[in-house]
Computed example of a mutant assay.
Amino acid sequence: MENEVDTRSYRLISGIFHPDEATQLLMTLIEDKISFHQRKDWSRRERFGETDTEGVKRIGELRQTKADLAAVIKEAAAAGMKLTINGNIEITLTPE
């Protein structure tokens, strides 16, 4: 696989959700990602005495995304609407 790029896609989320279901699904996903970066930062600080700057930045971005999504879900709930959610994961394998 030398000098080749291999890209694969996977459907992670696909469906129509009531606002309460969308909240549970999306907030759990985002919280898990935030927790991942927090653990990674903690580990780096314990082992090397330095902050995982990229991870801390990503936590801030995820928190903003969480707030934005909460607002959209609240809007949908107030209007009696459902939410269509599609989320794909794309993984590219590249040589080191």
Score class of each variant (00 low, 15 high):
Met1Glu: 05
Leu25Arg: 02
Glu21Cys: 00
Ile30His: 02
Glu75Tyr: 04
Arg44Thr: 13
Ile59Trp: 10
Ile59Cys: 07
Gly60Val: 03
Thr51Ile: 15
Phe36Gly: 01
Gly49Asp: 08
Met1Gln: 07
Glu46Phe: 09
Leu25Ser: 07
Ser43Ala: 13
Phe48Pro: 03
Ile91Lys: 00
Lys57Trp: 04
Leu83Thr: 03
Arg39Gln: 14
Leu26Pro: 05
Glu96Cys: 06
Leu25Phe: 07
Tyr10Asp: 05
Glu90His: 07
Ile16Asp: 06
Thr84Leu: 12
Leu83Ser: 06
Arg45Met: 12
Lys66Ala: 13
Leu62Cys: 05
Lys74Tyr: 01
Thr7Gly: 00
Gly80Lys: 11
Trp42Gln: 15
Gly55Tyr: 07
Glu54Tyr: 09
Phe17Asp: 02
Gly55Glu: 08
Ser14Trp: 03
Val56His: 05
Asp20Leu: 08
Leu62Glu: 02
Ala78Cys: 05
Leu26Gln: 01
Thr94Asn: 06
Asp32Glu: 14
Leu26Glu: 03
Asp41Gln: 11
Ser35Tyr: 13
Leu93Asn: 04
Phe17Ala: 04
Val5Gly: 03
Val56Glu: 09
Thr84Pro: 02
Pro95Met: 03
His18Gly: 01
Glu96Lys: 08
Asp41Gly: 04
Leu93Arg: 00
Lys74Asp: 14
Asn86Leu: 07
Arg39Val: 04
Thr94His: 09
Asp6His: 10
Glu4Trp: 04
Pro19Leu: 09
His37Val: 02
Ile73Ala: 09
Met27Gln: 15
Ala70Arg: 12
Thr53Leu: 14
Ile89Thr: 01
Leu83Ile: 10
Met81Gly: 10
Leu83Asp: 00
Tyr10Cys: 00
Thr53Pro: 01
Asp20Phe: 08
Lys74Leu: 10
Trp42Thr: 15
Thr92His: 02
Glu90Ile: 08
Thr92Ala: 10
Gly15Lys: 03
Ser9Glu: 04
Ile59Gly: 07
Glu61Tyr: 08
Asp32His: 09
Phe36Cys: 05
Leu12Glu: 02
Ala78Trp: 02
Asn86Tyr: 06
Ser35Phe: 11
Ala22Lys: 03
Asp68Thr: 10
Pro19Phe: 09
Ile89His: 00
Asn86Gln: 09
Arg44His: 10
Ser9Cys: 01
Phe17Ile: 01
Lys40Pro: 02
Arg39Ala: 12
Ile91Pro: 00
Thr51Arg: 15
Gln24Ser: 13
Leu25Glu: 03
Trp42Tyr: 14
Lys57Phe: 10
Trp42Ile: 11
Ile91Met: 04
Asp68Ser: 11
Val56Phe: 05
Val56Pro: 01
Asp41Met: 11
Asp52Ile: 07
Lys57Arg: 14
Ser9Leu: 01
Ile34Leu: 10
Gly55Leu: 09
Thr94Val: 15
Asp6Pro: 01
Met27Asn: 12
Ser14Tyr: 07
Glu90Cys: 00
Leu83Lys: 02
Met27Thr: 08
Ile16Arg: 15
Phe17Asn: 04
Glu21Arg: 13
Asp6Val: 12
Leu69Gln: 05
Thr94Pro: 02
Gln64Arg: 15
Ala70Lys: 11
Glu31Val: 07
Met1Asn: 07
Ile13Leu: 08
Ala77Gly: 08
Pro95Leu: 05
Gly80Thr: 05
Ile59Thr: 06
Ala67Gln: 14
Thr7Cys: 05
Val72His: 12
Gly87Leu: 02
Met81Ile: 00
Thr28Tyr: 07
Pro95Lys: 13
